[in-house]
């Protein structure tokens, strides 16, 4: 936590109304990061709908709108008005780039600073103060102590977007040799015996990460509003950091090498490019718990040191003029 006279009051608001946002838990991680930095009394959180009233009452030094600009219900006019009246910066930290980037004109028109979860997408903001700021992990929510008890060999959880279905299908011969659990939504259960359409809460997910020998990391290739530039993401998503915080040994298919900026290949994360490469890794480590634990521990250490929301917020504040 920083010195008292350097502390700033921060209001964290949802970038889309809570009435249409089903993912408010990530906002709580951002709040946690600010609380770790400035203390409880200096941080407030609000849905977008009530942000103007709370801003006028709380009088923060900055407002951070976190989330997505995609819903048509996103109206930032009052938020901008609050910032103009209080003479404070309005910051957006968007977490769904590039999948929803076509709607980010809504933030661009009002923001003083924009932070995007994706490095490549950041290049496409026509805004003088746009920066890259990846997602992260929450120590309180995602940290799990290492354990020797594994309940499955392979684990993946997520919506069965076509690219994920394709990859899981292609490595299924390998997965079948081991105890594999695939959870989430829209999985064609007739095709793979180890898939189950069951959604998992954020906390329970970390338990699965903790209890798996290997966690498969497959990004998402599914866009809701990415027609303008058809961008491909470069930065790994939040699950990469959350799984690392839980001490998982992640198997990461390389579609971008940006991952090496966050975790070291071989010692903190395991990169693969094809089925042979994946098989080599698995055969080497499946029955080597010490090696796996070392990788998991390294990843966790790196996540604690560099990939918490606390660290991200420190990076944000280095850039903002307040």
């Amino acid at each position: 936590m920083i010195m008292l006279d350097n502390r700033k009051k921060v209001l964290v608001v949802g970038a889309s109304p809570d009435s249409v946002n089903q993912n408010t838990i990530m906002r709580s991680f951002v709040v946690e990061g600010f609380v770790d930095l400035f203390g409880n009394d200096y941080v407030e959180e609000s849905p977008l709908e009530y942000s103007y009233v709370l801003a006028k009452k709380f009088e923060p030094n900055l407002i951070v709108a976190f989330g997505s600009c995609m819903p048509d219900e996103c109206d930032y006019s009052l938020l901008r008005k609050a910032c103009d009246e209080l003479k404070i910066p309005l910051i957006f930290w968007l977490h769904d780039d590039p999948y929803e980037i076509d709607f980010n004109y809504r933030a661009i028109s009002v923001a003083d600073y924009i932070f995007s979860n994706d490095k490549w997408a950041t290049e496409f903001y026509n805004h003088p103060n746009s920066y890259h700021l990846p997602m992260a992990a929450s120590k309180s929510a995602h940290f799990r102590p290492q354990t020797c008890n594994t309940l499955q060999d392979f684990f993946f959880c997520g919506v069965a977007f076509p690219n994920r279905q394709q990859l899981i299908g292609d490595i299924a011969p390998l997965l079948r040799k081991y105890k594999t659990t695939i959870l989430g939504a829209d999985w064609p259960i007739d095709e793979c015996e180890f898939t189950e359409n069951r959604r998992v809460g954020n906390s329970e997910l970390s338990d699965y990460y903790q209890n798996s020998k290997f966690v498969i990391n497959i990004g998402r290739d599914f866009n809701l509003a990415n027609d303008r530039y058809q961008l491909v993401p470069s930065t790994p998503g939040p699950r990469t950091f959350e799984a690392a915080m839980a001490g998982a040994v992640q198997l990461y298919f390389v579609e971008s090498m940006e991952i090496v900026e966050y975790f070291e290949d071989g010692s903190e994360i395991l990169l693969f490019d094809d089925l042979k490469g994946l098989t080599d890794i698995v055969e080497r480590l499946a029955e080597n718990p010490e090696a796996r634990n070392s990788i998991g521990k390294n990843a966790q250490r790196r996540a604690l040191k560099e990939h918490t929301y606390y660290e991200r917020i420190k990076s944000m504040l280095e850039v903002i003029d307040i």
Partner: peptide, 14 residues
């Protein structure tokens, strides 16, 4: 060999 290992796109810098 399995198409998921070659049917993907990459950002220009990457």
């Amino acid at each position: 060999y399995p198409s998921s290992f070659y049917n993907w796109r990459v950002p220009n810098t990457e």
